[in-house]
Amino acid sequence: MKTRNALSAAALAATALLVAGCGNDTCPTETPQVSQIQSCTASPGATVPVRLKACPTCNQNITRCEVDVQGGYIQLDPLAEACDSSTSCPPGCAPGDIVCNVTAPSAPGTYTLIVSNGQGGTLQGQLDVGTGAVACAY
């Protein structure tokens, strides 16, 4: 009976580790500082590579940009993995562009692009969906 209880306890412990996400090798995510967002024009349904001027700190590794379309607004969320504390690196950043691939809505119109600036505020751009090729500019 003791062996059976020990096996049951071991099975429960293994299940608890799996449920807790043991083995996940990703770091927490942070929003990098963003200083500019492009405005773009595109045809309905086109993929639009919207660029953001970013200034991630040395502990941030930008991994992706999530896009959330809600009505006339398109929220861009650049995410950076931060495996170390920001206090572990010198002041400053590694400036560069982040590309957020947006699928233009199927309905023609003007849509507001919104991104957090990483400092408690937001920046806005514009996506004009109509006819013509994809074009973006700061």
Rank of each mutant, 00 (worst) to 15 (best):
E30P: 12
P32R: 01
Q38E: 06
Q38W: 02
S39H: 06
C40L: 04
T41P: 02
T41D: 05
S43P: 03
T47I: 13
V48S: 03
P49W: 10
V50I: 05
K53Y: 15
C55A: 15
T57R: 04
Q60N: 08
I62P: 01
R64Y: 11
C65F: 05
E66V: 09
E66S: 11
V69M: 11
V69A: 11
Q70I: 11
G71C: 08
Q75P: 04
D77G: 15
L79I: 11
L79H: 13
A80D: 07
A80Q: 02
C83P: 10
D84I: 11
D84S: 15
C89E: 12
C89D: 15
C89F: 15
P91G: 09
A94C: 14
G96Y: 06
C100H: 00
C100N: 08
N101T: 06
T103L: 02
A104V: 01
P105F: 06
S106V: 15
S106Y: 05
G109N: 03
G109I: 08
I114E: 09
V115R: 00
V115Y: 00
N117F: 07
N117M: 03
G120A: 06
G121Y: 09
T122C: 10
T122N: 12
T122F: 13
T122A: 11
Q124P: 06
L127Q: 05
